[in-house]
Design a protein around this nucleic acid. Structure first.
Lengths: 210, 210, 210, 210
DNA sequence: CATGAATGAGTCTTCATTCAT
DNA sequence: GATGAATGAAGACTCATTCAT
């Protein structure tokens, strides 16, 4: 994530089964090294070793370290964005409180499926090149939420984009706090309830008076 | 921020005027380099150069790179925590909606006083050594919020700590989104309103029925 | 030789032919730099340069400067200790004067095979980490000598360990003086004779009277 | 002891009482730092600090680090050489066995007066600039011993210089072994006896047959 | 004079990347 | 294609030395 823009694309698409397995191994290995050693010690050699291959092979799949990190971050962000887009799409036209509940569920499912991964990638997202990817993912999500909100039958959102940004931020904040360990024991058992309450209350603020 | 705990203390306190200036210059320079180059390119050489001094001087005040970063992060976190503690203290016993408004004001004031700094330090907070400091700051804040909430005359919080964590996370999430540029133009003009509405709605969820 | 104990082991054994050559080149280069520049100027860069390779390659074989120096010192000390152990073993039960002669021969052969190396390594042996290795080598040698002495048919040594220490020290002292250049021209032609005389006389001091 | 030749002279002679005290403090401090930290970590700052003064003051007395080390080594070597010269002078014309005893006594007294110092200075003597000083001291000592030996009434030394070198080396070897810790517990109680025996036996080897 | 902050060249060490085998 | 040794630029950190106060 050091250089800024170009040449971050993976070198080959995993057309063959072997490639897919290899790329998967690299993905897993990267997350592990990231988690155990931190971004700055997440070196190509270490990743390759953990993935059971040589550095040379890693470079067969990614043109450089940043591309590897970007690919993994992108995959994560895409999967999160996809999940949220799907949920938003599925709840267009539903009452606001169902939207809130669905959104919370989708966010938690996406972010807590692999907490290690989610947490590890924050560092990647922060360092230079990751910012652009994060921005893109964030934008997709906000657009999806805004569209869903705009379709609510029982509320009127003057500025769905802003409300979407606030809503997503309000969910992500506590999730991130938990991922980063800033939370009391047992916090995650109450997390969903509180987020639903939080989001529902916020969205109902926009309820239209008949 | 690579090493874990020890030896992160500054070397000398800036007692003399010249020293104070030097330390201040280092502080500013670090934020600038962090902002413009990113954490991984925030090297001691670059910071010293930006601060208009030699590396040697930097090392006169901080025993290593991590200590420099930690010092700056700590200062920031402390100031944020102090501000929030102060606000929480001042609004004990007030109605929930006043608490909400005061908390939003305090958080925004603290985080947006120097947006560059706030943003730059996220990377530092994520990298190994910064996590511990963040955790400490976060804990102080949550404790302060919880204490304030517990004193509300018009609401009853069964689990003030959890509510505090959620409340703070819900505020920080959108603020961070904006700091990191994931927000539409003009977002910040609406930010405060939305956050007050968000937080008030959430807290009033706990209103006691007489 | 600055750090005290751990992590002084070489990184990979030179299994392949190329590796063996590389390690050999490092060995030779280190001795040369040590001789021509002294311990404090025996830097990894200079050694690598002299060996005709890059610093990186040096670090492929040794984890740090001290490990490189330790490896070379250890090899030298081991070869000296081995030679002396062999000589002592071979002369068990022989008359004291044969022992003396054999010991002198062994010490001189071992220390003067490569005088440059012997001399260069004195500095390494003195600096922190080298002391432990030296102590070990010295101990092995004294044990070997003591065992040989204890087996003498024509003498009785009440305290073979002490006598061994004195004997070895008495040989090493003049050898070192010569290696370090503190000796008149032509000294080495007379060295062996004098050492044999010295050691024989000393050991016969312990001759048992029938 | 890194640079080779020039500018190693102290800057001012300790004419005033204060100077003498200062120089003495530096001397002591240097030995302490040398002993506790090793040559490579024996920095001017540390020495000055230990001596209770600022680096600047140190540089008032010595033009550079090497000069400081050289001065201290030279002082030590001179005092050893002086003591031995005195002993040798005092025993001219005496029987060989008295010479041997006197020489051992002188060497031990000189080298073991301050064992820490003796040991610490070996590193200094080994690193570049120290070699020349050591050579000079060694030469003085050998000359003195040779002159004494040549005056023996009961022996004839064909080559007093060589015998002197061997004799001194044979004493220094075991002493050094002890100083460096390569010796069994209680070794020093037996050291003198053995050295006297060693040297007497060696020298009497040259006894003239009437 | 003493002080000690500032300097910056010089060390050690790591790591992304290449390429001969 | 895979491998992993070699490269060397770049970063962290130290320390001899100077000089303004």
């Amino acid at each position: 994530m050091s250089t800024v823009t170009a040449a971050l694309k993976p070198r080959k698409s995993p057309v063959q089964a072997r490639s897919a397995a290899t790329v998967g191994a690299l993905h897993t290995a990267t997350i592990q090294v990231l988690t155990q050693e931190g971004l700055s010690r997440c070196t190509t050699t270490r990743v390759a070793e953990r993935a059971g291959m040589s550095v040379g092979s890693l470079y067969q799949y990614y043109p450089n370290r940043d591309a590897l990190l970007a690919a993994i971050l992108e995959k994560h962000l895409d999967s999160v964005a996809n999940a949220i887009e799907r949920a938003c799409h599925a709840h267009r036209g539903k009452p606001v409180c169902e939207m809130a509940s669905a959104l919370v569920t989708a966010v938690l499912a996406a972010k807590l499926r692999d907490p290690e991964e989610s947490k590890a990638l924050y560092a990647v997202a922060g360092d230079r090149g990751g910012a652009a990817l994060s921005a893109r993912g964030h934008a997709r999500i906000v657009v999806a939420i805004a569209a869903m909100l705009a379709s609510a039958p029982d509320a009127r959102f003057d500025d769905p984009a802003t409300t979407g940004t606030i809503a997503f931020g309000a969910l992500i904040g506590p999730v991130r706090a938990w991922l980063e360990g800033h939370a009391e024991a047992g916090f995650e058992t109450r997390l969903k309830d509180h987020l639903v309450r939080l989001l529902t209350a916020y969205l109902q603020t926009h309820r239209s008076r008949p």
